[in-house]
């Protein structure tokens, strides 16, 4: 699709912030437009990577579940982990990937709570891997947006 969606969003964001917002008096409407401009810049960033990081994360979670399943002591949880580990993303539509991601992250919570209660080196190893995956999940979601105080 040309012009690129990312280029369009970049132009639209800049236009809103440097032209449209500037003709308004300082106040609620101008601030709303400036925020909209910042958000469009973030959308541009997310548009480019949206499917990629979700596919990456869903794959990482399935691999983690495959490693963890033999170590869990709850039969039902073990079966859920094995089933999830065998799954795949059959669609690259972002909302489909999101749905799969939510199911996998929900299962990750159950696994994490379970291994925290087990006193064994295997459990600690899985726990360590879970924390590493959670740290990686925040890196995947980072957006180039300003901060608050």
């Amino acid at each position: 699709m040309k012009p690129d969606m990312t280029r369009f969003l970049e132009v639209a964001s800049t236009h809103l912030m440097t032209k449209t917002a500037q003709v308004l008096a300082p106040g609620y409407e101008q601030s709303s437009l400036l925020v909209l401009g910042v958000m469009l810049a973030a959308v541009r960033h997310e548009f480019e990577r949206a499917a990629a990081w979700r596919v990456e994360e869903n794959g990482a979670l399935r691999r983690l579940f495959a490693e963890a399943a033999p170590a869990v002591r709850d039969i039902e949880l073990g079966a859920r982990l094995e089933e999830a580990a065998a799954g795949e993303d059959s669609s690259l539509i972002v909302s489909d990937l999101e749905r799969n991601n939510a199911a996998l992250r929900g299962l990750l919570i159950d696994l994490h709570a379970h291994v925290e209660e087990i006193d064994s080196p295997e459990a600690r190893l899985i726990e360590e891997k879970i924390w590493r995956e959670l740290a990686a999940s925040t890196e995947r979601r980072t957006l180039p947006l300003p901060g608050l105080t």
Partner: peptide
């Protein structure tokens, strides 16, 4: 109100990073 959406986008992941940092698991 746009502030609701921007707050969620802007702060949600940063808050998760803060939790990881406070628990000693920041990347």
């Amino acid at each position: 109100d746009l502030i609701l959406a921007v707050a969620a986008w802007l702060m949600g992941n940063r808050q998760d990073c803060a939790i990881l940092s406070e628990l000693g698991y920041a990347s």
